[in-house]
Amino acid sequence: MENFIGSKQLIKKLKSEKINTWFDLGLFIDRIREEKKLDIEHFSGDYNSFKEQLSNSGVAFLTFYFSVDGVTIEVEKYAKIFRKLFNTQIHYIAGAFYPESKQLIHPDTKKLEISECNGFDDWKLYDSFFNKKLDRGGVLYNKLILDFWDEVLVITEKLSIYVEENNIKLLYLLNVCSNPGNVSYSLATILVSEFMGIPVINNSHDFYWEGGNSEVDIKIKKLPVGPRDFFFTNSHIGEFFSLMENLFPWESKTWFSLHINRKQTEHVININGHNPANVAEIGTAVDTEEYSNISKRKKLDTLKQFEKVFSRNSKRLVAYSVSGVIEN
Rank of each mutant, 00 (worst) to 15 (best):
I5P: 05
S7D: 10
I19T: 01
N20H: 12
N20M: 12
T21D: 00
F23D: 15
D24C: 07
D24Y: 00
D24R: 06
L25D: 04
I32W: 06
I32A: 07
E52S: 15
S55M: 09
N56M: 13
G58N: 10
V59I: 13
T63K: 07
Y65T: 06
S67R: 06
V75G: 01
Y78L: 10
Y92R: 09
G95S: 00
E100C: 04
S101W: 01
S101I: 05
K110Y: 10
K111M: 11
F120N: 00
D122S: 10
K133S: 01
R136S: 12
N142C: 05
D150A: 11
V154G: 07
K158T: 00
E164W: 08
V176M: 12
P180K: 05
P199H: 02
I201Q: 03
I201E: 05
N203Q: 09
N203G: 02
N203V: 03
F207M: 03
F207C: 00
V216Y: 11
V216A: 11
I218P: 01
K219A: 08
P224G: 01
V225R: 14
V225F: 14
R228N: 08
D229V: 04
D229A: 02
F231L: 08
N234R: 06
I237L: 11
I237C: 05
E239M: 07
F240H: 01
M244P: 02
L247V: 12
S252M: 07
T254L: 14
R262G: 13
K263R: 14
E266W: 10
G273V: 08
A280Y: 14
E281I: 12
D287M: 03
E290C: 12
S295R: 04
K296M: 04
R297F: 07
F306A: 12
R312M: 14
L317A: 03
A319D: 15
Y320C: 13
N328A: 15
